[in-house]
Write a protein that binds this DNA or RNA. Sequence first.
DNA 1: CTGAAAGCGCTAACAG
DNA 2: CTGTTAGCGCTTTCAG
Lengths: 354, 354
Amino acid sequence: MAITLADLAREANVDASTVSRALNGRAGVRKEIRERVLDAASRLHYRPNLVARELVTGKSNAIGLLVSDIRNPFSAEVARGAEDAAYRAGHDVVLCNSDLDPVKQMRYFFSLLDKRVGGIVMNSVASLSRVDRKRIASSNTPVVLLSVEPREHSFSSVTCDNERGGYLAGAYLAGLGHTVVAHLTAAVHHSNLEGRWRGFARAMRRVAPRRKPVLLGGAHNSRGGFEMAQQLLKKYPEVTAIFAGNDAIAFGTARALHMAGVRIPDDISLIGFDDIEPASIMQPSLTTISQPMYEIGSAAVEILIGRINRNDGVPEHRKFDVRLIERESCRELPAAPSARGLSGERASPAEVRA
Amino acid sequence: MAITLADLAREANVDASTVSRALNGRAGVRKEIRERVLDAASRLHYRPNLVARELVTGKSNAIGLLVSDIRNPFSAEVARGAEDAAYRAGHDVVLCNSDLDPVKQMRYFFSLLDKRVGGIVMNSVASLSRVDRKRIASSNTPVVLLSVEPREHSFSSVTCDNERGGYLAGAYLAGLGHTVVAHLTAAVHHSNLEGRWRGFARAMRRVAPRRKPVLLGGAHNSRGGFEMAQQLLKKYPEVTAIFAGNDAIAFGTARALHMAGVRIPDDISLIGFDDIEPASIMQPSLTTISQPMYEIGSAAVEILIGRINRNDGVPEHRKFDVRLIERESCRELPAAPSARGLSGERASPAEVRA
DNA sequence: CTGAAAGCGCTAACAG
DNA sequence: CTGTTAGCGCTTTCAG
């Protein structure tokens, strides 16, 4: 059916091994022969059987990308960055959706090993048991995480500076005069979201040392945001500003506020995290912390490929900067009758873009 | 390193071929031996080397998914449906982003063939030259298209009923009294979008036989929608309703209208196509035609796997139904001073969901 | 029912 | 520089 190395060898009157050398640009092939081979190859439209090559080299040119759900715009953006980087390096990416389900995650992981992928980029290993994480670590397949799991020394990681992002959000709201604030985040352990909360809490401590932000945990998606916001309105009506752990949560929050007749930003200010596309489309447009999702994806793959090629076990860590995107969903808190004496302390909005 | 069939054979005191038969559940293996093998396999944590298997069988258990851009929510939703269906069938999917660039598309296609994927799901072959399409068709690798290319008899296809969707949009706007309308669509040949236009034009012909809708073509994304809307406002200010070829175009349109101080739906009604998530988030929420993107993805893969298994060359075609999702972006046209005598003819909104 | 042998298409020593 | 040989890990005849 398809034409093989042996066919080329016959055609060019050389041995198959010579054809292999010529095609792979190995040194030590007479120019004339190389040309004869290359000519035959293009004449016969030769295409190497990668499966055969993989079998002998023991590595495929594929990398695994294990995200929670590609429909999540964050994952999609990361995936595109990853795929572009892989394409540049001549690799291809096999896509897996784990829904963060530990069972699926492990099943995918091993199935990727079965096809001898060169390495794997995955969201997080936080939902996995200790033994599963050990299994992954001891697989000798390079792994790049999109979150930082402090205990795991063998994994590389690429993240944004979540802590600073949370801090920026807090400082911004504080700068607008808000002191009675809430944070809506994930119920489960999620290191990226936790970093955001830490930074936010730190910023708020500076302006309201004795009043802790309200902290609610739920599903870290639009529905979760909707439910958490409803709960918040009922139990903490005094809150004047909300920091959502990500934009999806913010969308759900906005919908709940809208339905309850609470206006954004007039009654409550809202700030998100990620800067996915709908953030600029919604009305009012969402002020949010932007992280370079595409670059995170491409950096993850670049690190992965570097590790594959060097074949050392040394993990790399990369942390991207974040910035505040000021839009329309936050506004200055009108001065309350009782002076709060904070005017001098207001943080200035850091980097701001239209 | 990894443990192989031969290892199991030694461990279970049988030949490798017997191990193979036992593991693959082939008939004709004594129960006792089968158990001995299975036991050894689980004891040694045996995992088959899929690459080796693929080399001998000539087919990998992977399928290719060639979309224009995974960041497009339509593609992401399709991809998730596709991946889930593949997972159920024990296949995995390698993701490629072509940007509809013919060169990238062909490069990806052949690179997928090089790894002997069982089949390929791709957006469309409309941007390809005739010879390239022939090359794809003659590759003997099953292909499922997400658009219907009337000339290509060898490809399967899965689409929604674009023509009916366009008709629904037109009938709905007509039912609200709109007769001076515009359609914003792609500049390039795009069979899905063309079907929508055909249906829309047909619906409008019934209420305004002599007034053709304004038809503008541009980039079929948010930016294109923005630009086309600006052009529309300048050249055709009399238009009272816009049908956008997809939701992304509608988002750009909404932004342009907003910036020009034109209110939706008070001044202009807007209807989209796809029903991607931001459609329900934007303010006002977008009335749109919904197509089952997830099901389209999973159906495409199911058809593909069916064709792979049957190994016949018979293409299948599947067309999904669409429905109108009525939200807030359209409103009835106030009766003009000059009676138009159309009241009896208004189409009723077909299927409507909250 | 099981073993022996061959081979998928390629790369990688090792000789010459 | 080129050919010979061996083998990656598996499946699949074909005998026994």
